[in-house]
Design a protein around this nucleic acid. Structure first.
Lengths: 146, 146
DNA sequence: TTCTCAGATTAGATTTAATCTAAACTTTTC
DNA sequence: GAAAAGTTTAGATTAAATCTAATCTGAGAA
């Protein structure tokens, strides 16, 4: 099946109309391994269609996050970063260079019922922090690695 | 021992001088159950000492986060929120009203060594999302609670 | 006790990121 | 085809955070 169809079905699964602007944002995120800012997404989408507005990109990102199709990661710096939730994973953020990297999913424990009280869980988000492979001291150094 | 001494030792444990402004920020967070924004912290601290500067509050929050004494939570809205890390806990953020609540700590699994690669872990952050006790449908409703 | 120096603060200006606005456009439904 | 609802637009505006260069403060050395 066509990648274009996949994006369209993904949007409609989230209850959103597949407008050209939404398609462009979603396609960019689904085809992008990194965690771009709203500005980076807007610039990419606006390069393809110069009429595309910054407010539209922000509106669409908001709608996509709300629909559960995109996740917002607050990493280093002021701007929010985004990635498509097409595969479950966790994030790792480097203390030194600020890089945001995907980590394979590992099951997250549910809080105890007593602790949860009357709340209704919908999702969880687990972020690990430390030093990335490039910023960590070399394996043979004396630094602890746990 | 005096609460004032506790705050001072907490700051010095993090390698930070105990200036009156830092003390004020830390004391506010340690005595505050909620998750205030930088602006709310500044207003509280500035009310006590009108010479205290907004930039100082921001600088000190940055230093406290970097020293591992305070945690930054990206909740609803644009402003970052903060809490003191005097006790390990997780957070819960309500989808509806945006409230940030503390949840008792539960142990977080370490990612598999294969998944971790050359990274060095320092910390983790687990956030649950859903509906808080006030926004969730009543217990007797048909709504699923998991 | 005084001096030096490094760390910290100041107060308002400035920048960055995100939102607002009101009109216009587009798509869906009747 | 018309109406209504959802969406987009482009630049203005707002909110949050940072910058600046001078000044202050406190710790350590002499």
């Amino acid at each position: 099946m066509d990648a274009r169809d996949e994006v369209k079905r993904f949007l409609e699964a989230g209850g959103l109309r597949c407008t050209p602007q939404r398609y462009a944002v979603m396609a960019f995120l689904m085809g992008h391994a990194g965690h771009p800012t709203a500005s980076e997404i807007f610039e990419a989408v606006n390069r393809a269609d110069p009429r595309c507005s910054r407010a539209t990109t922000y509106n669409n990102l908001r709608d996509l996050v709300r629909a559960g199709l995109v996740r917002e990661v607050a990493a280093e710096g002021r701007a929010a970063r985004f990635d498509a939730k097409n595969q479950r994973h966790h994030h790792f953020i480097c203390d030194h260079c600020g890089a945001v990297e995907d980590l394979a999913w590992c099951k997250v424990p549910r809080p105890a019922a007593r602790s949860l009280g009357g709340r209704v869980l919908r999702d969880c988000e687990l972020i690990f922090r430390g030093l990335c492979a490039r910023c960590a001291p070399r394996k043979d150094s004396r630094a602890q690695r746990f």
